[in-house]
Design a protein around this nucleic acid. Structure first.
Lengths: 335, 335
DNA sequence: TTGTATGCGTTATCAG
DNA sequence: CTGATAACGCATACAA
């Protein structure tokens, strides 16, 4: 069917060894034979077989990336960075979407192991014991993205969520706000949930503002509708706040929409602040003031770190990526 | 290193053939030996080697998907569908982002060929001759997604852009609009550009409204800022229109924002209509009336078609996916 | 510089 | 039911 190295060898009147050398630029052939072989390759349209190659080299030039979800801008942006890094490294990336299901995650881990990927980027999800155990077992290098493990020594790349939330809250306070609600995406989320709430609380305390637990709204996720619901709650509870800090841009947009529907003006009646700085943060009306995560770079870094681990066989250092406040129009100074 | 089938065989006191049979459920072993072998597999944590397998089976259980871009909601949604279909089929998907570069596309095609993917989903981009020639050469099944080739017989899945644009325009007309501007993403785009403009024109003509070329704004892409710029143009040119049909939701959002900045009310001063029905179409203020493409299903269909081609070895029939008008709040009836 | 032979980890074809 | 053994396509140590 598809021509093999043998076909090339035969047609070029050389041995497969020679062809192989030429293909891999290993010393041991004259320019003439090279030319001759290359010509044959061109003629018969030979494509090396990656599997056969990988079988020997024990390298697939492929990494896997595991996401809970791929149909949101967050993952899309991160994936873009990963893809670019992989491209630079001459590798491909297999995307796996788990829907946050343990079974599906384990299944993918197994698949990636069978496919002998060189490494795995594990994104936006806590690493459970069976996952770690398995990856440990099959000895596949892993780096965590927007996640962290307190129990296992896995390198990660993420922003300091606590500090980012702290900064955001301080910004709000600097703008004159004292009564600030926080919409936390998931109270049980050890990464994107709790630390952000802590940062928020800390900022208040450091500013001499007492924390009011009622001001902390627990949404059940980070999505748009969660933001809408949270805003509803703020409204029915008639929370006496002047600013709302949502721990995702999507939720912040939900707040914007619900506010608008109720005839509430942002930022006049409430200031609102998001988290992530997705592209849609600039597309909203008003444009969203938010704390930015360098999503693309986080993806790129994670992949680069992975490639370094693969190349050196050693652990790499985790990276805390810089966050920053993007000032736009959804926060108004309160005098 | 990682245990092989040999290790299993040795430790279980059977031949590798037997292990292989058990692994693949081929007849020829007793329940006892099966139990014994399975136990050993469990113990030593054996994982079959996909490459060795693929080398023989000539199947990788992997498909490639080629996108010009992965960091937008459009691709993200489509990818999600592809991933689900692949998962159902027991396959993995390698994502390739081309940045619309011919070189990068060709490079990826070569990579996918080397990796011996079972098939390729080629998305959102015209298929150039060298691409087709190459894929023809290496005999990899392909299906086009949101694209179509007039020169080559490649199955595709897409909506009928012309008809969708027609429907959208008719809807606007039904709402009483007679002066309708169209923002076309790219006048040279044979797929998402020209057909949509044609559909728009046709709708006008069928309704006895004459086409005014000035009303057709040529943006240089389908992105948010292109929409902003187009709206600027509409404004400076003082186009006498009551409705604006943008050929992407992102662009529509751009016109929303620009309008808002200039103090123009949507839908009171202008009605605006989008295209795609991305998630963000519901997140805007006002929520966007738009013509929906079933993105997720398109991805899923494309992948399913691909798997069918792979399984049967035959061509499959192209699929025109249904579009629909999603009525929300950015279009107002004009009496 | 070049060719031969072995092995990578499987599956499949034979015998037994 | 089970076990050698030959492929699969390639890289590489070893010879020539």
């Amino acid at each position: 069917m598809t021509p093999t190295i043998k076909d090339v060898a035969k047609k070029a009147n050389v041995s497969i060894a020679t062809v192989s050398r030429i293909l891999n630029n290993k010393p041991g052939f004259t320019p003439e034979t090279k030319l001759k072989v290359l010509k044959v390759i061109e003629e018969i349209g030979y494509q090396p077989n990656g599997m056969a190659r990988g079988l020997i080299n024990k390298k697939t030039q492929t990494i896997g990336v595991i996401f809970p979800n791929v149909s949101n801008m967050y993952s899309a942006e991160v994936l873009s960075g990963i893809e670019d890094a992989a491209h630079e490294d001459g590798s491909s990336v297999i995307v796996c979407k788990t829907d946050s299901s343990m079974e599906r995650t384990m299944k993918y881990l197994r698949v990636l192991a069978e496919k002998r990927v060189d490494g795995i980027v594990f994104a936006s999800e806590m690493i459970k014991e069976p996952f770690y155990k398995f990856m440990q077992d099959v000895k596949i290098p892993v780096v965590l993205l927007s996640s962290i493990s307190y129990q296992y020594p896995i390198p990660y790349v993420k922003v300091d969520d606590r500090h980012a939330a702290y900064t955001a809250t301080i910004y709000l306070i600097e703008q004159g706000h004292k009564k600030i609600a926080m919409i936390c995406g998931d109270r049980n989320d050890l990464i994107a949930g709790i630390p952000r709430v802590e940062g928020y609380k800390e900022a208040l305390q450091h500013s001499g503002i007492s924390v009011i637990e009622d001001y902390i709204i627990n949404a059940n996720g980070f999505a748009y509708h969660n933001g809408q619901e949270a805003m509803d709650e703020i409204l029915v509870k008639k929370l006496d706040v002047t600013a709302i800090f949502a721990s995702s841009d999507e939720m912040a947009l939900g707040v914007l929409t619900t506010a608008h529907q109720k005839g509430i003006k942002i930022p006049d009646d409430f200031s609102v602040m998001g988290y992530d700085d997705l592209k849609l943060a600039q597309m909203s009306i008003p444009q969203l003031t938010t704390v930015a995560q360098p999503l693309y770079n986080m993806g790129k870094s994670a992949a680069s770190m992975l490639f370094e681990m693969i190349a050196t066989g050693e652990q790499v250092q985790s990276r805390i990526m810089p966050h920053s406040i993007i000032k736009r129009d959804s926060v108004k100074e309160r005098l």
